[in-house]
């Protein structure tokens, strides 16, 4: 686990910035690119928290596979003639107000943390100390021993999804 305030605050700032960019960018491609950055920053948070395996899965699935899927869907969706041109309802002052509210909240929280108004009894002092090998063994034990029924149920659910989508396409929706 990496306890570095510079990494945390810079990554947090970039995360919120790109989240807002993804939500309010006018071009959908820019929105997708911002979301890719957000997903990779999420993987960075997982890595900083000591969960390398989750970070790899996050980067592989959400940083690479999901944006490709969304990009292909954008290509399909905007292939035909767009019949309507929507006016953008959310104006700049509204977005500015929301961003200001979020950053004021963050500032108040940081001030409270700096003057130690938050009770410290909740957080356990002893931090997790695991290396990569222990991390993988913890995952294996969790998936295949402690939560094996949940794992099987998820597998069954994914199989049902695949079969359902195949039937859905066969019937022509």
């Amino acid at each position: 686990m990496i306890d570095n305030p510079v990494i945390f605050y810079s990554a947090s700032f970039l995360l919120i910035l790109f989240v807002l960019g993804a939500l309010f960018a006018r071009n959908i491609i820019y929105s997708l690119l911002c979301s890719v950055v957000v997903f990779f920053l999420g993987a960075l948070f997982f890595y900083v928290l000591g969960s390398e395996y989750n970070a790899i899965i996050q980067a592989a699935v959400y940083g690479l596979a999901v944006p490709v899927l969304i990009g292909i869907s954008i290509m399909f969706w905007h292939n035909g003639k767009e019949k309507e041109k929507r006016a953008e309802k959310f104006t700049i002052p509204y977005i500015t107000l929301m961003c200001a509210g979020i950053f004021v909240l963050a500032f108040v929280y940081l001030v409270m943390m700096s003057v130690a108004m938050v009770p410290d009894t909740f957080c356990i002092k002893e931090l997790a100390q695991v290396n990569a090998f222990d991390n993988i063994s913890v995952f294996a034990k969790g998936i295949f021993v402690n939560y094996v029924w949940a794992f099987e149920l998820v597998s069954l659910l994914l199989t049902i999804v695949i079969a359902g989508l195949s039937l859905f396409k066969k019937r022509g929706a």
């Binding site: 969960s51 356990i124 931090l127 997790a128 991390n135 995952f139 969790g142 949940a150 998820v154």
Partner: peptide, 20 residues
């Protein structure tokens, strides 16, 4: 899982399921 669970790390497993 990282701060409050030093033994089983259940949060990692939940996050993994959730991602899938």
């Amino acid at each position: 899982a990282s701060f409050c669970d030093n033994i089983t790390f259940d949060g990692y497993i939940f996050a993994l399921f959730y991602m899938g």
